[in-house]
């Protein structure tokens, strides 16, 4: 689905943040991406939804090389890749329900009120539907971001530190939602520095844990 082949990335003329990174996100797989702060987790995720172009190497999306995608094709691609950002990135002048429905709104697809209600219920935000993002708690914002990411029934969910600003109970709740999506056949990649979250997932789902160290991507061992 998404394939990185010997990818390198550096910001400006700086040193390479990522070097020789190869990764294949197979359908229905569940990956964790870990590493210290500043290691390049967010950068790798951005390469996976074409928010950044690799300095070297190739990123293929559903079999198509990144540079071959037109701007409209990139927009269509992002309807197949749901992204949960650490800072959520909502439009503050729209209600929670409108923010969640945004991918459908911008793509001109019809919005089913019952589907939206179901999704709000699934993430436990039925009562907050008409509130505005700034009125939500950290955990509620993360769940709203997750709901928005899955609104278009994407094939892949990319989550960047989804539990970074929430307590442990909320972290487990978000993890269970992502596991549930994976069991529905979605490919999931979570970037996190929270190793306890990775450990907690092992009883729920078969995962592959990747670590970024020194700009290189390696498969994490049993030390987790």
């Amino acid at each position: 689905m998404i394939e990185l082949d010997n990818v390198a990335y550096s910001y400006g003329n700086g040193p390479a943040l990522l070097s020789d990174v190869s990764l294949k996100l197979a359908p229905g797989s569940f990956h964790f991406l870990t590493g210290p702060s500043g290691a390049g987790k967010t950068t790798l995720l951005k390469l996976c939804y074409k928010d950044l172009q690799p300095t070297l190497g190739h990123v293929r999306f559903f079999g198509v090389d990144g540079p071959e995608l037109s701007r409209d094709a990139v927009a269509s691609l992002r309807l197949k890749i749901g992204v949960v950002h650490q800072d959520c990135q909502f439009l503050d002048h729209l209600s929670v329900a409108e923010n969640i429905a945004l991918p459908l709104t911008v793509s001109g697809r019809p919005i089913s009120a019952s589907d939206l209600d179901d999704l709000l219920g699934w993430v436990g935000l039925s009562d907050q539907a008409m509130q505005y993002p700034q009125e939500l708690s950290g955990g509620e914002r993360q769940r709203a971001a997750l709901a928005r990411a899955v609104m278009t029934a994407p094939d892949i969910i990319l989550a960047d530190e989804p539990t970074g600003n929430v307590d442990w109970d909320m972290s487990l709740r978000l993890l269970s939602l992502l596991v549930e999506l994976n069991k529905m056949g979605k490919t999931v990649l979570i970037a996190t520095h929270d190793l306890s979250l990775i450990r907690a997932s092992k009883s729920q789902v078969s995962t592959r844990v990747l670590r970024i160290t020194g700009g290189r991507l390696t498969l994490a061992g049993a030390d987790l």
């Binding site: 939804y49 927009a75 439009l91 945004l102």
Partner: peptide, 13 residues
Amino acid sequence: IEVLRLVGARDSY
């Protein structure tokens, strides 16, 4: 605009 691009909005939209 960045959020709109990220959730799949086309430039024309």
